[in-house]
Design a protein around this nucleic acid. Sequence first.
DNA 1: ATACTTGATGTAATCGATTGCACAAATATA
DNA 2: TATATTTGTGCAATCGATTACATCAAGTAT
Lengths: 348, 348
Amino acid sequence: MNKKTTIHDIAKKLDITASTVSRALQDNPRISDSTKKLVVKTARQMNYQPNSIAAALRNGKSNLVGVMIPTVDRNFFGSIVRGIEEILNDSDYNVIICQSEDSHEKEKTNIKTLLKAQVDGIFASYAKETVDFRHYEEILNHNVPLILFDRMQNHFDVDAVVIDDYKGGFDATEHLIEQGCRNIVHLTGPDNVSIYKDRKRGYEDALRKHGFPVLQENIYQSDLKLEAGIRIGEKLNKLSKLPDGIFSSSDYAAIGAIQVLKKSGIKIPQDIAVVGFSNESFTNLVDPSLSTIDQKSKKMGHFIANTFLERMNKKESYTPSRKVLTPELIVRNSSLRKEHSKQNFIKN
Amino acid sequence: MNKKTTIHDIAKKLDITASTVSRALQDNPRISDSTKKLVVKTARQMNYQPNSIAAALRNGKSNLVGVMIPTVDRNFFGSIVRGIEEILNDSDYNVIICQSEDSHEKEKTNIKTLLKAQVDGIFASYAKETVDFRHYEEILNHNVPLILFDRMQNHFDVDAVVIDDYKGGFDATEHLIEQGCRNIVHLTGPDNVSIYKDRKRGYEDALRKHGFPVLQENIYQSDLKLEAGIRIGEKLNKLSKLPDGIFSSSDYAAIGAIQVLKKSGIKIPQDIAVVGFSNESFTNLVDPSLSTIDQKSKKMGHFIANTFLERMNKKESYTPSRKVLTPELIVRNSSLRKEHSKQNFIKN
DNA sequence: ATACTTGATGTAATCGATTGCACAAATATA
DNA sequence: TATATTTGTGCAATCGATTACATCAAGTAT
């Protein structure tokens, strides 16, 4: 049928060579203005679409980047991806998204897939499950720029964009203390994931700063999913002395706990004030709306993309950098005892 | 540094030609078993990774497909994408995701981008805003297979995978009637989007079937976002006679309305029973948990992917098909008056 | 008038994998 | 023994865009 037109077709029509056409389309100064105009016009007429694959092969550059995240249907990761796209699409890059589903195996196959697709860069957030990082070395062996974000460790000397999880944990806990909490429980995740360790440190330091003891029995470790929150809520329910505050490293776990506690007549935030982490999109849909820590996900996406673009320019002698973003405490009704409803999205 | 190894490198090492290597790696019957084994072994040793871009250029096939959806951070679309990936990754395809954000302009540029990336197929769900479909013709002009899903119209004779929105609307409404509702309000979306029209027809027919009048003043049109739900909730609040049921074409709008109604002391589901649409992930996080219609998103993804694969095989003389999936009513606490809490996820 | 720029375009190789056709050697058939 | 067929490889073109280098005409300097 209608074959795609190539630069050769244009060349033939104008009785010039393909190289001239190519140069003209690239606005090469060595081509006269008159030919340029002619070529551009003819290209439009013939509905020419450059074949990016041919260019990719020749240039050794696919203009594709791969983003690997645990899952796309978490607000945080979804909007990081958006942030990345906002920047990169303007520079003619396309984004391939891979989901690791927090599985080590999937992570491995995803990396293979992306390398096979000849991506120009890989942006990744570790799967929770991952403790062995050899598959990441593959990326570096292939000379593909790697940028880690959010979840990372110091195994590799690569670019990284993270938030200050310590500060997030600290601020959340201090806020609970300011709201009058005296016995604050913390829900944390697997210890091999540094973000959870950091948030926990923040929690502990905030307690210490205000003269409260750090009690190991107040720290509940889990995978931080909804179901884990439910289980922990049930445990809390059975305690002889209820806590009066919960800082959860995950919005999901926080909601799980709140659901159970509400069932047994406990008032949130009056009896127990709760702060989650991530500012998931459902946090202002639930009742009471959930206080949380916003992770500046879009901004993070922008940083990742810009870091990548810089890296592509400097080519040699590039020194990886680390960017730490500051999270923001968002106070909603689940923790606001003093000025009730002030921050509620519904007027009055 | 360490250049990537190509089939030529392998050929040189074994003192054979690249074509033999290529054939050996493809398990071509014309190559002897001994050479095959040797080549495969050497390839492994040299850590050979096929350059898919070169293959793409030669074969005129990028092994990329583009998925265009309004947004990735809606459960429905996110899991469609997952479903698509589950199938296509096994067939060595990669998926590029584009978000239209329900904007006509973004949709246009996304299509350009995908075509430039030489994707082998495009799977798309129309943006709400879109009323002019010329940019979709571009896809067909380029001879790129197009599969529409969820939101679509009959402009093009292309493959389509949709759910039976009419049945979804009918079932939701009939369920409310069974729960004793006698005055059911419906929240619908823009009329140019067929899914909303179909759901509305389902609503109307269910009312008629049970002998209730269809009242235009009971139908509220909006963009179905959270804020729209809030506004409509406020309107309902002011009515002299409150409705006793709400069927919303969107979970978000449903939640918005519920939030307002709860504030003014109205009990859900006792005073007003509510059913949403989409089974968004937050629907069982809110209080009360929201009854809704599940759209079989993952299954839809599977269908889309498989339709595409079939299409790629049959090449010529292909007749587009239309697959209609059956949605499922999920009854939760926002509409369950008779056996309270039975379907609640918390035991007892 | 000769040598030397400058400007504009063409030639041909390249990126890496694929594949139709050619060709030699080995085997089968007459 | 001569011819036909099979088997295993090699040769070279191809996909489309890019680019170092060559070329050639016109213009400038000496």
